[in-house]
């Protein structure tokens, strides 16, 4: 990489200052505030607050509910990421075919990303509701199994995973599409001439060339699932039935803003922060080595 040389020693700092300031105010300050809150026990209105050390953490780490929310988080994050990336790549590949009305299709496949997660949640709620949704009715009709996610935990989990992946798939498609279009046609043609079939071309040429984008999307999808995927669960299952869809970030919200247990909520967000930091570090350390850039 080329090193940029600035004539003035202060200028580079000045140039990054706005970004540092934004990061500081909107990321580091709240994060430090969470760390501070996590060692206090605070009454709902914040009028009484006293230092409890690591008590909030001890309580969390000895509660089975917290462990189940961790398991749910990983299930959810890997589910959303796998479906989101798989479907994204598939649709992007289809959108590179030479078909009539391609521009219209390409625009249309990006639409889900423009829908706010709570709205997506409401849409899925209407489609899947055990009382008035169409899909459980048809599914039960065909399979004679009752898809009642109000009581069946795994159905509820599958539902929120699919719905969340759907809201995010447009983003993945956009990146995959850009990546696919950047692959020179001449390389693929050369491979065809050498007798490589579609699968072989994908495995040996397309996939390696897509790996930087895939890696980027993997990280973004996982972090999004851990941290940001809140709207759908809030709109559809509220963490139920019996905590089956209570992922860590939802529990942070629920215990803090609904339960008004601010200390525990802050402690959970600190732990969640650690999980995401660890996850990102692992990904960059092990996965990135196998990614081919340029």
């Amino acid at each position: 990489m080329k090193r940029a040389v600035f004539p003035n020693r202060l200028l580079p700092y000045l140039l990054v200052l706005p970004q540092i300031a934004v990061t500081g105010v909107f990321f580091f300050w709240p994060a430090l505030e969470s760390v501070r809150l996590s060692v206090f026990r605070t009454s709902p209105f914040g009028d009484k607050s006293f230092f409890v050390g690591l008590e909030n953490f001890r309580k969390l780490l000895t509660s089975s509910e917290y462990y189940s929310s961790i398991v749910n988080s990983f299930l959810f994050a890997f589910g959303v990421t796998a479906i989101g990336l798989g479907a994204g790549l598939l649709v992007a590949a289809l959108a590179t075919q030479k078909i009539r009305g391609l521009a219209a299709y390409r625009t249309a496949v990006l639409w889900p990303y423009g829908i706010a997660p709570p709205i997506a949640g409401i849409i899925f709620l209407f489609i899947f509701h055990p009382s008035y949704g169409a899909l459980p009715y048809w599914l039960s009709f065909v399979t004679s199994y009752e898809f009642n996610w109000l009581l069946k935990g795994w159905v509820a989990m599958a539902l929120v995973i699919v719905a969340t992946a759907w809201t995010h798939v447009g983003y993945n498609i956009a990146f995959f599409l850009a990546g696919l279009l950047a692959i020179p046609a001449s390389v693929l043609e050369a491979a065809s001439v050498d007798g490589a079939g579609a699968i072989r071309r994908f495995r040996s040429i397309i996939f390696p060339l897509l790996s930087p984008i895939t890696f980027y999307l993997l990280v973004v999808n996982l972090i999004f699932s851990f941290f940001g995927s809140f709207g759908v669960i809030h709109a559809v299952t509220q963490g139920g039935p019996g905590r089956a869809t209570e992922i860590m970030v939802f529990k942070v919200y629920n215990d803090g803003l609904i339960g008004l247990n601010l200390g525990s909520s802050a402690a959970q967000s600190v732990l969640l922060m650690l999980v995401v930091i660890a996850l990102t570090a692992i990904q960059f350390r092990f996965v990135e080595k196998r990614v081919t850039y340029s």
């Binding site: 709902p44 069946k152 139920g240 039935p241 629920n254 609904i258 339960g259 008004l260």
Partner: peptide, 20 residues
């Protein structure tokens, strides 16, 4: 913290009604 208590109760009721 009755809101949280109610939620704990309803979560367990769901476990009971699901037969778990």
């Amino acid at each position: 913290n009755f809101v949280q208590i109610r939620e704990a109760i309803e979560g367990e009721l769901e476990n009971v009604f699901a037969g778990k």
